[in-house]
Nucleic acid binder design. Structure first.
Ligand SMILES: [Mn+2]
Ligand SMILES: [Mn+2]
Ligand SMILES: [Zn+2]
Ligand SMILES: [Zn+2]
Lengths: 138, 138
DNA sequence: GTGCTAATCTGCAACTCGTGCGAACAAACA
DNA sequence: TGTTTGTTCGCACGAGTTGCAGATTAGCAC
């Protein structure tokens, strides 16, 4: 996701308003690698801006997502996790604490699949499940 | 998933009862490659057994899942899809019609990842998104 | 076949996550 | 400072799933 400053410019240039609520979310998401849920962002945002509405958090996240500034990851059937990292990458999920880690995977082009030749793939994603370092240690 | 006959034996041998509702679901799932949702199974089941409860469908699916006889696939944030194919395989999803296809992928062991050395992976899954043959044709 | 009992089924309430809606509000700009 | 939209907020609602408890029934003993 771009920086709060760049997002501010983009919003204004598209006739969208830059509100304090949006600015707060821009800053909470910037460089955030935690893949937070809407509820988690709402909780953090509420500390800095009591009274902000959960509805507004959902609204802003969905705006950023449809603008292509924010990614979304869904793991199992849990709540949506938002991902400011929109570069090409994959994920490793700790089944114990639920943490999600960004990973890069090389060699995917060389994978051999029996996928039907009539199927036209447009993207692929890989998710590893397992236990993270801190959970293994504990 | 094992055959209705084998499941019947397993259920009885574990002190579980073999009811008409369970038998019907065993047969609806056997060799089913559609990755159906609970609602879809309920709908089909209702034709053959009017009055069967959606709650019972959920209950039986979750029993089979925790017995390891049935798999579960989650795609984006849609409803859970159930998968009688519990062999090692991956999926291709048509973004137009929503169909899910089983695929096999070779070479996954050779993938190079920057996954943290402290992370202990126990499984990985690959999902391709794209357009299926019938949707491309249409 | 009858009866017993624990497992199951069913209907409904409740719960989680998310969206639709409309009135109150405020950013942008003249 | 006023006007115009876009935005925020609160609440109702919707999908998907689970908890609960009373009615039902499979499995088994006699
Ligand atoms: Mn990520
Ligand atoms: Mn499958
Ligand atoms: Zn962990
Ligand atoms: Zn299709």
């Amino acid at each position: 996701m771009r920086s709060p400053q760049e997002l501010t410019e983009r919003f204004r240039s598209e006739g969208l308003k830059v509100t304090p609520q949006r600015q707060l979310l821009f800053s909470l998401l910037h460089n955030n690698t935690e893949h937070p849920t809407a509820e988690a962002l709402y909780s953090t945002a509420s500390e800095q801006m009591p009274g902000i509405s959960l509805r507004t958090v959902y609204q802003t996240l969905s705006d950023l997502t449809s603008m292509g500034e924010l990614g979304q990851v869904s793991i199992d059937n849990g709540p949506a996790r938002f991902d400011p990292n929109i570069t090409d990458h994959h994920h490793a999920v700790c089944d114990i604490c639920g943490a999600i880690f960004d990973i890069h995977v090389d060699g995917t082009a060389k994978l051999a699949t029996d996928i039907d030749s009539g199927f036209t793939p447009s993207s692929m994603s890989i998710v590893y499940h397992g236990s993270c370092a801190s959970c293994v240690a504990a």
